[in-house]
């Protein structure tokens, strides 16, 4: 008997009618229906082509943030997100990243893998810094990429990390200087390739664009982003 990874309720007898009727093998479920329903998938709604956010009625495409980005940067970059960063996702991130409940990676690992391997591209995860690795013990992004072959072409710079990313406000984040460096031996693998950068959350888009600009410097033919949440 398994339990919902978020609320611990038992997952017995939760196979839906549709699942029984469809002949596909039942997938091992990680969440109860109630918890699963709290997450909002972005694949069936209108989203911004550039950052992947859900477009509300009055918003243009690309959204106003992305219009500003187009004026600021000189390379092509598009991001796609699987889920909206709503309160359920916020809570999930709190438990997965900040409490460090590594097994929660199983909730989205399959979907993320499916999304990133749909096209044949080189997969580069956003790295975490050494301090986080020492206390948290895992990179939350690679945790979601079980079974994918990754090129860890980026590492964090040696600069002192004064605040956690999540503790910064928008202005702080936009001011952020290049936080990454290329990993020397991996550079030649990037050259001429189509690259997908993977991150957990797209908030302002600064982090992932810093990563993209480095990969373009290393000679990538194209760079896109896929994030779990936007």
């Amino acid at each position: 008997m398994t339990n919902c990874l978020l609320c611990q309720s038992s997952l017995r007898n939760t196979t839906s009618f549709d699942e029984i009727m469809s002949l596909a093998p039942t997938q091992a479920r990680q969440l109860c229906e109630e918890c699963a329903a709290k997450f909002f998938r972005l694949d069936s709604v209108a989203t911004c082509d550039q950052c992947g956010r859900r477009l509300k009625a009055e918003m243009s495409n690309p959204c106003y943030d992305c219009e500003r980005w187009q004026q600021q940067i000189s390379f092509d970059f598009q991001n796609r997100a699987l889920y909206e960063y709503n309160s359920a996702m916020k809570d999930y991130m709190k438990r997965y990243k900040f409490l460090g409940d590594y097994q929660l990676r199983f909730i989205f690992a399959k979907e993320v893998k499916k999304a990133v391997t749909r096209q044949k591209r080189l997969l580069v995860p956003i790295p975490v810094n050494a301090g986080t690795m020492a206390t948290r013990g895992f990179n939350q992004v690679t945790g979601l990429l079980k079974g994918c072959s990754l090129v860890e072409a980026l590492k964090t710079s040696q600069t002192v990390k004064d605040k956690r990313q999540s503790e910064k406000d928008r202005a702080d984040r936009l001011r952020l200087i290049q936080p990454f460096e290329l990993v020397e031996p991996q550079i030649e693998r990037i050259s001429g390739k189509n690259v997908t950068i993977i991150d957990d959350v797209y908030t302002t888009g600064t982090t992932i664009r810093h990563a993209a600009s480095l990969l373009y410097q290393a000679g990538a033919a194209s760079v896109i982003g896929i994030t779990l949440a936007r």
Partner: peptide, 19 residues
């Protein structure tokens, strides 16, 4: 369920009270 990368482990049972 308890494994972390690099041969490390954590407790997923009492994690609500810091890991």
């Amino acid at each position: 369920q308890a494994n972390l990368p690099n041969g490390q482990y954590y407790c997923y049972v009492c994690i609500q009270m810091k890991r």
